[in-house]
Design a protein around this nucleic acid. Sequence first.
DNA 1: CTATTTCTGTTCTTATCGGTATAGAAAGCG
DNA 2: CGCTTTCTATACCGATAAGAACAGAAATAG
Lengths: 196, 196
Amino acid sequence: MVARGRPREFDLDDALDAAIEVFWRQGYEGTTLDDLTAAMGISRPSLYAAFGDKEATFKRAVERYTVVDMDYVNAALAQPTARAVAERFVYSNVRAITNPGRPAGCLSIQGGLSGSKTDRRVVEFLNASRAASEDRFAQRFRRAVAEGDLAAGEDPAELAKYLNTITSGLAVQAAAGATRAQLTRVADRALLAFPA
Amino acid sequence: MVARGRPREFDLDDALDAAIEVFWRQGYEGTTLDDLTAAMGISRPSLYAAFGDKEATFKRAVERYTVVDMDYVNAALAQPTARAVAERFVYSNVRAITNPGRPAGCLSIQGGLSGSKTDRRVVEFLNASRAASEDRFAQRFRRAVAEGDLAAGEDPAELAKYLNTITSGLAVQAAAGATRAQLTRVADRALLAFPA
DNA sequence: CTATTTCTGTTCTTATCGGTATAGAAAGCG
DNA sequence: CGCTTTCTATACCGATAAGAACAGAAATAG
């Protein structure tokens, strides 16, 4: 793929990083194209040429967010035991949603939990994205049961939904201003209910 | 207070109930005045005369929502022990956020977790509203410690934040389509971590 | 019955939204 | 060097947002 014509003057990932910040802080519906182009440092036609429309830009931003900012999910899933998976997941989640210098909370939650009829697709996209993450944990816990690491009586899907509920709740608290210390204590407690 | 002039042709609470539904489903920013007036069955000037502007209507709706739809909080707080308070709170929360015929989830969460700069006040209003609820539980648990009902080592504020995190997380799951049965099992597990 | 008060519906205003047309600028290709 | 291709910036477009103006309608007060 050889570059033809005038080369793009901005970096796609840099631009997406800026978009991530804005969508994270203001949500999909609360973000205007002027907000986006100002933060990304590009003009409107450049955005449309590079990403498509607002919705496509949002999806690209969320995809990059899951790769860059939620890489800790992969690290958690790679832990040797279900218990270690859960601990690593919850604690690194707390760190991610209370990261100084980044918006508090989680783009996947703040991006849009509800929306107008015309923006319903965006809400469903985020729901599906979180469900996919939950599925990965369910799969990991199925493996743990098969390996004898988790008791046969445990329901992998239920454990995954439990963790997903915890991290969602933590993100809501973080967005409302809860501190890392507070949420760490909440995480400690939540893990009491996870099989040891 | 004697009624003067032409009497209002609609019921304030009926109108607010309709507004609650719309804000609940679509969030503050996703709701237009046309959405509101259509659902409430009144015209635009009637809405403005009765409630003020869109923001004031939202706040009135949230206030009514907390009185009508979150009355279970009072019932929970009135339970005799901290453990009973927690159980009652979490289980009735699950029922409320998966109530058939009503929107899934919780207005206080779906109303707006994030927003544009101009709608920031609404987000903060909701945050404050949830914080106030959390405070009531913290106070209740302080009483429980004083009464010897809770161990002296327990932190009432932390327990309250834990429950608030759980119910917030449950609301997010419900909004994304989780069933009552699923969330009941998550609630069962979450309560394992609450002092018995 | 008249005057006053307050509600109601239609219409209008202003700002801003997402998205686009158009023209110019910067690169590679021959 | 021109020609093609692709980017950039200014300006523009129709649609829609929140909110206000205005006149008519329905009640009470005298």
